[in-house]
């Protein structure tokens, strides 16, 4: 164990409740924005737990390597805290202040312990400072990671929401696609279409791309792959609403739509789908 760790431990020992009180007071100065707040009892518990784990980590593993296995407990506490606070709307710096606010009370005590030893004080303060900095940065990292996770989950949810698969008739599904089709979105959409085909036992699926402004090679290939996959499962796809520009692109790109049924409009596709399932539309009385 390093000498510095030893010094820190001595300062911590026996002064915990005193230190805890100072630390909590220190933190109450940092008010989070947007009405996010945490009960004081919760803060107290977290601080108490941190101090316990902090001491045993220094005792077992020294004050140098916070990535080491001895610091596992501290890291876990900090990452949980960081995640929850992140979700509660704390900013990264507000979250990190949990650790940084420990500096003042801790340094005061180090100063008292090294009152007659300027060199020792400088050294002890420096190492404690480094340690708390790396722990503080760690909370920021976790905070950011948690944010990124939220963003990627929302992106995923948005993808799934953006294109509903609707049932037009018994055995006939339609997938009205709107907006730019990138490769990732096409893939998600296609997976949900195939899943719905199984769930509803539909023989025919109409993919309507009236609302799609452009199609690139990759997207065209994804469309084709979906048609092939549906065929392997025993269902047939009809592509409708191909705009003139897209028709041109498809031919220019050299994408072979082969024997895929294509129709100009969703209505035409629906008529064909009804016909193939042995149905038709009949006028029941004279209308306008």
């Amino acid at each position: 164990m390093s000498k510095n760790g030893q010094g820190l431990l001595e300062v911590l020992k026996g002064q915990e409740s005193d230190l805890l009180a100072d630390w909590i007071k220190e933190q109450s100065g940092v008010a989070p924005r947007r009405g996010a707040s945490i009960r004081e009892s919760e803060v107290r518990d977290q601080c108490k737990e941190f101090l316990g784990l902090f001491q045993s980590a220094i005792r077992d593993g020294g004050a140098d390597d916070i990535q080491g296995p001895r610091w596992g407990g501290v890291r876990e506490l900090l990452s949980n805290l960081s995640r929850t606070r992140g979700l509660q709307g704390f900013s990264p710096s507000e979250t990190a202040s949990f650790v940084f606010s420990l500096k003042k009370p801790l340094f005061t005590r180090l100063g008292r312990a090294h009152a007659k030893d300027a060199e020792g004080l400088a050294e002890a303060t420096w190492s404690a400072n480094q340690l708390l900095d790396s722990l503080g940065l760690y909370t920021t990292e976790v905070h950011q990671k948690a944010r990124e996770e939220v963003i990627s989950r929302q992106q995923q949810e948005m993808l799934e929401l953006s294109t509903p698969v609707v049932k037009l008739w018994e055995g006939i599904l339609a997938l009205p696609m709107i907006g730019t089709l990138d490769s990732a979105r096409t893939q998600v959409v296609m997976e949900s279409l195939l899943q719905r085909i199984v769930e509803t036992g539909s023989n025919i699926a109409i993919i309507d791309i009236t609302g799609v402004p452009t199609v690139d090679t990759l997207t065209a290939q994804h469309l084709l792959k979906t048609v092939t996959a549906a065929r392997l499962m025993g269902a047939e796809c009809i592509i409708s609403g191909i705009r003139p520009q897209i028709a041109q692109t498809i031919v220019h790109l050299g994408v072979d739509l082969g024997d895929v049924t294509t129709k100009a409009s969703l209505a035409d596709a629906f008529a064909i789908a009804l016909e193939r399932t042995g149905r038709g539309v009949r006028k029941v009385r004279a209308g306008s």
């Binding site: 997976e191 996959a229 065929r231 392997l232």
Partner: peptide, 21 residues
């Protein structure tokens, strides 16, 4: 569905085999 997607990606379309749901 997952099997069908994978087969297509693998490059097999099982031409000449009839399928049903």
């Amino acid at each position: 569905p997952a099997v069908a997607i994978t087969l297509v990606e693998l490059g097999l379309s099982l031409d000449g085999v009839r399928t049903a749901l």
